Computed example of a mutant assay.
Amino acid sequence: MSTPTPWPEARRTAYELGLSIDLPTVELPLDRAVGHTLAAAPASANPLPAFDTVAMDGYAVRGEGPAWDLLDYDQLAGHRAAELPDGRAVRIATGAQLPPKTEGIVRLEDSTVTEGTVSGPHQRDWRETGDEIALGEELLPAGTPVSPAAAGFAAAAGLDRLTVFEKPTAAFAVFGDELIDRGPARDGKIRDSLGPMLPAMLEGLGATASRPVHVEDTPEAHYNALNGPAPQPTILCTTGGTMHGPVDYLHPTLKKLGAEYLIDTVAVRPGFPMLLARTPNGIVCGLPGNPQSAVISVATIVAPLIAGLLRRPLPELGVAAVADDIPGRGDCHRLALVDDFGRLIPHHGSAMLRGVATARGFAVVEPHTNARRSDALPLVPMPGRTS
């Protein structure tokens, strides 16, 4: 077994591996681009606003006043505005194009209309062309996830399509004859908890994940799982078999495939026996079989890997003011489950999911240290948590 990779270095290594791989790009309509990541920075096809635009209902006026003769029509949104004559006013709706030569807007609530004239205080209540963004200006940088709001922004800027990365594909090989995929535990077998959980986590990180395939504990089955027919997924995540037990065939299979190890164990608890390898068929992320360790492995190597593939920034760590003392784990980083209030969650064993199901994330305790109550610690957000 090689020397464990320090936890921060493992994150960076996985991220840099992602950056070294070029995903295909595609142009998609705005609605279909949502959920993808920008591969190129889009430029505005029209300024925002596209023309001088009135900010509220009122009267556009030209001349000194204090009263202006009203024109016999209204300036409504969606219609080209004619030049406003001197000494005249026109009733105007929010969002309408500002008539050329307008010198001020009398707000509707401040106006007085009598016998074809309008009076009241006036001011420059309009948005000028390009106030928000100029014609041809970059809307969002490459690497930005396309949210519904980003799609709306692109539409307002006159775009119909965006150039995005194709989503990296992720497949799952779940090792373990002891696992069943439905019903309660029975006859010495336990329910597979990773199969329903991990694909959804990777979908939330920006990948397209397929349903897990359960693999028998035989060398042949392991080899077939890692050397499947083309096309290969961008990432193959395996669960279990990352150590050297009697039926742990992952390492021998990787050796047979001529894999290049980038990470072989990480100095973190839980999650120590994770690995990251490159094979002729693609990238293998070996996740431990214990559920909490597998989740920590997703946060440590899979999330940075996907971020790199999509040219997003390395996932940032949050901050948690912890409410309890948290002992460290010697030479390793400790990732400790905490709730929304920074409290250490009691069910934090590597094989336990009760705490994972409710945790805000993992507070990071540095090697050779113990965290004290009220310390502000780095926080690894729980993958897949939406609130």
Rank of each mutant, 00 (worst) to 15 (best):
A14K: 00
P8F: 09
D192N: 15
P49H: 00
P233L: 02
A200S: 12
V54M: 15
I296F: 08
P49Q: 02
D69F: 02
L310I: 03
A171P: 05
S193P: 09
L70S: 04
M1D: 11
D160G: 11
R191G: 02
E137W: 00
V215R: 03
D86C: 11
P148K: 04
P148I: 01
L84K: 05
V118H: 13
G308M: 06
V34S: 08
E138D: 08
L135M: 12
G206Q: 09
K256M: 04
E128C: 07
H122I: 03
P280Q: 00
I92L: 09
P24A: 10
G349S: 13
I326H: 08
L379C: 04
V106L: 14
P280N: 01
G286S: 10
D248V: 04
R12W: 06
T53V: 07
R343G: 09
I235Q: 01
D72N: 09
V322K: 07
F341P: 01
A323Q: 04
V106R: 09
T13Y: 07
I21G: 11
R343M: 14
L76P: 10
F175H: 12
Q123L: 09
H222N: 05
P327Y: 03
P219H: 05
G158A: 08
R311W: 14
G204N: 13
Y59F: 15
V90R: 04
T102C: 12
L23T: 02
L305Y: 06
G349E: 01
A320I: 12
L76R: 14
D69Q: 11
E316Y: 07
R91W: 03
G158F: 00
R373C: 12
D325G: 15
V247I: 14
L139A: 13
D340I: 01
H122A: 14
P313K: 10
V213Q: 14
E166W: 03
G206T: 06
T163H: 08
L198W: 08
G130F: 10
L84A: 07
W126P: 13
D160N: 12
V164W: 10
F51T: 01
T163Y: 07
E83I: 01
P85F: 06
G143M: 00
A33M: 02
A185D: 14
T234R: 01
I306N: 10
W7Q: 07
A336K: 02
G245S: 12
R312E: 14
E64T: 07
D131Y: 11
S20K: 06
E9W: 01
P231D: 00
D181A: 14
T253P: 04
F175R: 08
A294I: 06
E128S: 14
G241P: 13
L353S: 06
A185Y: 08
R161Q: 13
G258Q: 05
A376W: 08
A150D: 11
P280D: 00
A320R: 02
Y223R: 13
P184D: 04
A209H: 12
A81D: 05
L135H: 15
L23I: 01
T239W: 05
D125A: 15
P219R: 07
H79Q: 15
T112F: 10
H222G: 06
N290S: 13
F172E: 03
S111P: 13
D57E: 08
S350V: 13
A45V: 02
D248I: 02
L344T: 03
L353K: 11
G63C: 06
T169D: 11
V266H: 12
E115W: 02
E64A: 11
I133C: 13
A96G: 09
K189W: 04
A359I: 02
R269E: 10
